[in-house]
Structures are given as C-alpha cells and as structure tokens.
Amino acid sequence: MPQNPQTVFIKETVLDDYRELCKVLDCDQKALDRRIERIAERLSIRDFLNIHPYDLSGGEQQKAAIGKILLLEPRVILMDEPTKGIDAGYKDQMCTLLKELKDDGITIVLVSHDVEFCARVADRCGMFFDRTIISFGEPEEFFCNNNFYTTAANRISRTMFDNAITTEDVIELCRMNGKKSE
C-alpha cells in the first residue's frame, strides 16, 4: 500500500474501484460482491462505498485502500507510512486492524517514521541508515536499548521503569506500582 492511498483508486466511487478487481481476479461478480460486503463490514466502510475516493478523509481513504488490497486476499501486505494523515482515533483502529490481519496469518511489512505506532503493532523493528540495517529486534528490545530512536513513553519513563515503550505500558506500570513516594 503506497504512502498516498489516492494512488490506489482509478474509478469514480470506491465500489466501482473494488468491482474493477473482477477483471484482475477473474472471478464471478456475485462472488466479488460478497467479498466486498464482508470487507466493507469488517472495515466499517459501507457508508462510503458510493463516494468518490478523493472526497474521503485521509483515514477513510486509508481504510478504503486497505479494503481494496484485502479483496486480493494477500498473504503479505507492504505498507508505506500507513499512519500518514490520519487522526489518533483512526490510528487506534488501524492498530487493531493490523493485529487482526496478523492473527489471520497475513504478514505485514511496514515502513514508518511513526515510532509510537510501530511500538504498538510490530513483532520486530529495524532501523535503516545509509542503505544498511543498523539496529534490529523485538519492539521492547529495539526501543529500550536505543537512545537515538525510541518512543516518547520510553524516553520519559526509562529512569522509573524498565521496558516501557508505549503509553499503555507506562500507565499499566503506574497502576501496578502505585504512587511514587517523595
């Protein structure tokens, strides 16, 4: 999935764009319509199937683009900056969706500058510099052992807690440990 989801669309409505895949998939239109219905339900995009993709918000365009990709029933999805231009609410939905897709057996490779998002969704993280992977590991190891490229939650809490990389981690550790005495 490209950084700009608009590049995925070529038709006047999201639904027309989805139906165009019938040519690529060499499938029955009714079967494709059933797949479209399932994906529209899963992604909560039924309300904008009959809208021009460019008239959707950034998050809606991302959802619609992911829907088009899911119609292809991929085993691997490549994503470039999937959180670009989306708000915090949709970012939470994107996080949940990517975890569900992973649970469905789909491999997701994403490139992002959004380290907070990566810390939430990734199984493994790596940092490229000058065409070389200079750091690689599971999110906790990657972000906790990296002073240059880490999450805000880790930078703020690393003197108080080990291995906290997300806001949720810090909140949970605060709840478990209670109020810090003075």
Rank of each mutant, 00 (worst) to 15 (best):
Q3G: 09
D114Q: 04
D169H: 14
M176Y: 06
R34V: 06
M79Q: 04
A40N: 03
P74R: 09
I77P: 01
C144G: 00
G89K: 04
N154C: 12
C125I: 14
V121S: 07
A119W: 08
F142D: 08
R34A: 13
D92G: 01
M127K: 13
I108R: 01
F148P: 00
D104T: 01
K180I: 15
T167I: 15
P5A: 06
R35I: 00
Q93F: 15
A153E: 11
I171W: 00
E168I: 10
E60C: 01
G89T: 14
F148V: 14
S57D: 08
T13E: 10
L15S: 01
A153W: 07
I51W: 03
K30V: 13
E182L: 11
D87G: 07
D17N: 14
S157H: 04
F9D: 04
I156Q: 09
A64P: 01
V121R: 03
D26A: 11
R35L: 00
I165S: 02
R35S: 14
V121Q: 05
D26M: 12
F9W: 07
L101N: 06
R75L: 10
D103R: 13
I39V: 15
L43I: 04
L49C: 08
T159P: 00
L78C: 12
K23N: 13
T150N: 02
R158T: 08
T167V: 15
T151A: 03
I171K: 05
L32H: 05
C125W: 08
E81C: 01
Q62N: 02
G85R: 06
K180Q: 11
C27Q: 14
V76C: 06
C118Q: 09
S135K: 13
G85H: 04
L70T: 09
T107P: 03
M176P: 00
F136A: 05
P139G: 07
M79I: 03
I134F: 04
I77Q: 01
D169Q: 05
D33C: 03
D104C: 11
I165G: 02
R42D: 13
E60G: 07
E172Y: 05
R131H: 14
G89A: 12
F48D: 10
T166C: 04
G58D: 09
A153L: 07
H113T: 15
D123I: 10
F48H: 11
I69E: 10
D16M: 13
S181Q: 12
K23Q: 15
K30G: 02
R175P: 00
G59K: 07
E168K: 11
T83Q: 09
Q6S: 13
F128L: 15
A152L: 15
I39M: 01
S157I: 12
E100V: 11
Y18M: 12
C118I: 15
H113R: 00
L32D: 04
V121A: 09
I133S: 02
M79L: 15
I86D: 07
R19D: 05
G85V: 02
I165W: 06
I106K: 03
D26T: 04
Q61C: 07
R42I: 06
E141Y: 14
A88K: 09
V115D: 06
T132Y: 06
K30Q: 14
E73K: 13
I134L: 02
P74D: 11
I156L: 12
T107F: 03
I108P: 00
G126K: 07
F48A: 07
M94P: 02
D114H: 07
A64N: 04
A152G: 05
L97E: 09
